[in-house]
Design a protein around this nucleic acid. Structure first.
Length: 442
RNA sequence: GUGGGCGUAGCUCAGUCGGUUAGAGCGCCGGUUUGUGGCACCGGAGGUCGGGGGUUCGAGACCCCUCGCCCACCCCA
């Protein structure tokens, strides 16, 4: 006898049983509905790309984290580590035919060879949406509205979209003549509410080589407090003399006001000047969305504006703005918060089976329920009724339909509500409507 | 990639200074109840103690390596 292969999965790669997958699909379905309702159109791209297409735009870190290898033809290839870079390539190839502005959404797995942690995996699903070919603030506003609507619809509890504009940071650095050190400075600033201002200042001096006084000036941002409005009023002084900085402040003001006018709850939008974001391609507005009850797990939906994303692939300028929903991280957060109702079957209704005599009629009944829009499973064996009801309950079916000799004779069915234990006798002709009423009332 | 913590039944975990056939609760299967589930009672299945090597008369326990999970750094969804 040959030795068994140990069933196992790679670190950071996970299986998804039904109870998990049903939730994932529901979340993704909601994202699709919201994106589509704003006019974003679906696209897909290959998981595998030429390495040269993926390299270079995200910075050294992402390059290191890429799954990269030679294919059978000796080509240097890699698995995508996000959906934005492949979209830039896609846009360079197809936008001439598609026209701009172009709005797309894209649901797919991405891969990063980094260490795993709670809410961090090596394979995870993102739901991206982006608008390219326009610099209109309306596109920025819409991006915020989509996130707002999405998190509202997902019923994740209280959340906060933290918003900033990179131009403000750049403007400040211009005024202080520190533009050359912007990458390490912003990286340090981004850690503000994690490690505190003292450590940020220390890191700025160590990593960016700036003076204590300069670090303190950058941290003047962090001392801004109060309402979005109050911060907006204080910002111009900090970026004085920088055209870019002034633009950033005005843009941010317009976008925040626009989002509120567009229906976003003001309390959900928080101007946070410490948000910088690591991916080097952001040039304008940036944002991160966290759950108020579990901010530590990190951002579940982030993005921003980039004004030259496709420049590696085309001479045509393609500015854009978009964001990415991290499905796996959001689910990890919701699970930890115990906010998920798990169910292991998509079928609301289970039809009990007593024996083979009435199989034809039983299947016919199931077919009628399905054509009425219900998801129906027929139990395949003739086990004891109690066992079948127990099965239905454990599996998560909400209704059981019991039809035995007596019911077949009278053309009726017994409809059981598994949760309330109530049971009622209905005409088979009325069964679908009765199921609907029952399910709708829950 | 760096540093720390942890891996015992499907799940949550006991397991004393190293000592004989490795335990509990929950879950699962069966029965009490061959057309009425969640409760109760009775019974049952299920463990290479993550894996490999070493120390020892003897290892779940001690040492080394390895794999995995968790936490921090880094970075990010």
């Amino acid at each position: 006898m040959s030795k068994l292969i140990q069933p196992r999965t790679l670190k950071g790669f996970r299986d998804h049983p039904p109870a998990s997958m049903i939730l994932r699909e529901r979340l993704i379905d909601t994202a699709r509905e919201v994106y589509r309702s704003f006019g974003f159109a679906p696209i897909d791209t290959p998981a595998l790309e030429y390495t040269e297409v993926l390299l270079g735009k995200g910075g050294d870190e992402t390059d290191k984290q890429m799954y990269r290898f030679s294919d059978h033809g000796g080509r240097d290839v890699a698995l995508r580590f996000d959906l934005t870079i492949p979209f830039a390539r896609f846009a360079a190839q197809h936008v001439p035919a598609l026209g701009t502005p172009f709005k797309r959404y894209h649901v797919g797995s991405v891969w990063r060879g980094e260490n795993t942690q709670r809410g961090r995996y090596r394979e995870f699903v993102q739901c991206d949406f982006d608008t390219i070919g326009t610099e209109s603030p309306l596109a920025d506003v819409e991006t915020l509205l989509v996130i707002h609507e999405l998190f509202q619809r997902l019923e994740v509890g209280p959340f906060t979209i933290r918003v900033n504009d990179r131009k403000i940071l750049t403007g400040l650095l211009q005024r202080l003549d520190l533009v050359d050190q912007s990458v390490p400075l912003l990286r340090a600033l981004d850690k503000l509410d994690k490690i505190g201002p003292d450590k940020v200042a220390a890191e700025m001096q160590a990593e960016a080589g700036v003076s204590a006084a300069a670090a303190d000036e950058v941290l003047a941002l962090a001392r801004l407090e109060g309402s979005n409005q109050a911060i907006l009023e204080a910002l111009p002084a900090l970026v004085e003399g920088s055209e870019l900085g002034a633009q950033g402040v005005e843009r941010l003001r317009a976008v925040l006001e626009g989002a509120v006018a567009g229906g976003a709850q003001p309390s959900r939008l928080k101007l946070d000047v410490a948000i910088a974001r690591g991916l080097d391609y952001y040039t304008g507005i940036v944002f991160e969305t966290t759950l108020d009850d579990l901010p530590a797990i990190g951002s579940c939906c982030s993005g921003g504006r980039y004004d030259d994303l496709a420049s590696l692939y085309t001479k045509e300028r393609l500015p854009g703005v978009g964001a990415s929903l991290g499905v796996d991280r959001l689910l990890a957060a919701l699970e930890e918060l115990g906010r998920l109702e798990q169910r292991s079957t998509p079928a609301e209704v289970l039809l009990v089976r007593f024996g083979e005599e009435h199989d034809g009629e039983l299947l016919g009944l199931a077919a009628r329920l399905r054509s009425a829009g219900l998801a129906v499973e027929v139990y395949p064996e003739a086990r004891k009724l109690g066992a079948q009801l127990k099965f239905a309950d454990r599996r998560g079916h909400r209704l059981a339909v019991v039809v035995g000799d007596a019911e077949w004779a009278s053309g009726t069915a017994q409809l059981k509500d598994l949760a309330s234990k109530e049971s009622l006798e209905v005409d088979q002709a009325e069964l679908a409507a009765a199921c609907r009423a029952r399910l709708g009332s829950v």
